[in-house]
Structures are given as structure tokens and as C-alpha cells.
Computed example of a mutant assay.
Amino acid sequence: MFASNPSKRRQMILLVIITFNIISTWLHYTDNALFLSQYPGPEWFTSVGVISAVVVMTPVGLLGYWFYSKGIFWLAYLLLGLYSITSVSSPGHYFFPMVTPISWKMHSLIWLDGIMGVLLIGFLLWSSVVLKEWRSTSVGN
């Protein structure tokens, strides 16, 4: 189906990556907000702030995907790069002293989110540096 259209295949790959990224981020951020006192982090973090971040950043990621699917690559790269910060920053918890030992669930959510962010950044680098899709004259839609 997508074999004859590499552009559509790459859009599907990005859609899968962004979908898993959104799921992992929502799982981690929701857990973080619910159990904020158990997660290591700066004292100024609040549950409302954590949820607000994911509510604001999710549309940024979706908009980035939309721009990518329309062949507007530089704007897509910018927005998806910004969105990836929500995930790749998750292991930042380990830079703060642990108040209580964090659970296997919390470790799993932190690392799942971080790995999904790295996967998204990997896709962006593949698209922009290796494939140089931004040079494409054809729109991916």
C-alpha cells in the first residue's frame, strides 16, 4: 500500500511515533501530577503545572505532524522538536534528590517517555539530515 509512496510511508512512521509519544507522555505526566510528592523534581513543580504542560504541548506535537504531512518541513521540525522536549526531559527527574524511593512504575514511565522522545528526535534527524526531505519539491499530501 505505502511501498509505492515513500512519502506516505514516512508519514505513517511519524504518525506511529507521535501516537506512542503522546500516549507515553500523557501516562507519565498524569502519574507525575497524581503522585507529585513521590517524584523527584524541583520544588516549584505543581500538579496543575505538570498537567498544563502536557495540555499545551500535545497540540504542538499534533500541529507539527500536520505540517509534516503537508510538506512544510521546517515548521514541522521546529514544532516536533519543541514537542519532543516533553519526553526527552522526563529522565531529568534523576537530577533531583529522591524524597522517597520511586516505584518500578514510575521508573518505567520516565524511561518510556524518554525513549519515545529520543525516537521522535531520531526521526527528525533522519528526515532532515539523512533524507533531506526539506529539499523536496513535492508536498507529502
Rank of each mutant, 00 (worst) to 15 (best):
S128H: 08
P59I: 06
W26M: 10
S90L: 00
P101V: 09
I17R: 03
I121C: 13
K132W: 01
P40C: 08
T30E: 02
F73P: 00
G117F: 13
V56E: 02
L109P: 00
T137R: 07
P59H: 06
T100N: 13
G61I: 05
S87H: 09
L78N: 02
Q38E: 15
F123M: 09
H28A: 13
R135E: 13
H107S: 05
L109C: 08
V129R: 10
L75W: 12
G81Y: 08
W134H: 15
S47K: 06
F67I: 02
N5R: 12
K132G: 14
D113I: 04
Y39P: 00
L80G: 03
W74F: 14
M57K: 02
L120R: 01
V130F: 12
I22Q: 02
S138I: 11
G92W: 08
Y65P: 00
V129Q: 07
R10K: 13
M57R: 02
F95M: 12
T19W: 07
L63T: 15
M106F: 04
I72C: 01
N21V: 03
R10P: 01
L112D: 04
W66I: 06
G49Y: 10
I22Y: 10
I85S: 11
F20P: 00
P40T: 09
G64K: 11
L82D: 01
L124D: 07
M1V: 11
G117L: 07
V139G: 02
S90P: 01
H93D: 04
P6Y: 07
V88P: 07
S138C: 02
I102L: 10
I110Y: 00
I110W: 00
W74G: 00
L36Q: 01
H28E: 13
F35G: 00
L119M: 15
W111R: 05
V56M: 15
R135Q: 15
E43R: 08
K105F: 05
V56A: 14
G122N: 06
V99D: 03
L82P: 03
A76P: 01
W111Y: 13
I121R: 04
E133N: 12
W66Y: 15
I121Y: 03
Y94C: 05
F45E: 12
Q11A: 12
G49F: 13
L15V: 05
P42E: 08
I18H: 03
L36F: 05
K70H: 13
V56D: 04
S69T: 15
S52I: 03
G114S: 05
V129E: 07
L125A: 15
S138T: 14
T19Y: 02
L79M: 14
F2K: 07
S87C: 12
S90M: 08
Y94R: 04
G81F: 09
T25P: 00
W126A: 03
M98Y: 08
I115C: 04
M116E: 09
G92L: 10
I17E: 04
L124V: 05
T58F: 09
F73A: 01
H93Q: 04
S69V: 11
L78E: 03
S84M: 08
V16Y: 13
F35S: 11
N32L: 14
M106K: 00
V60W: 04
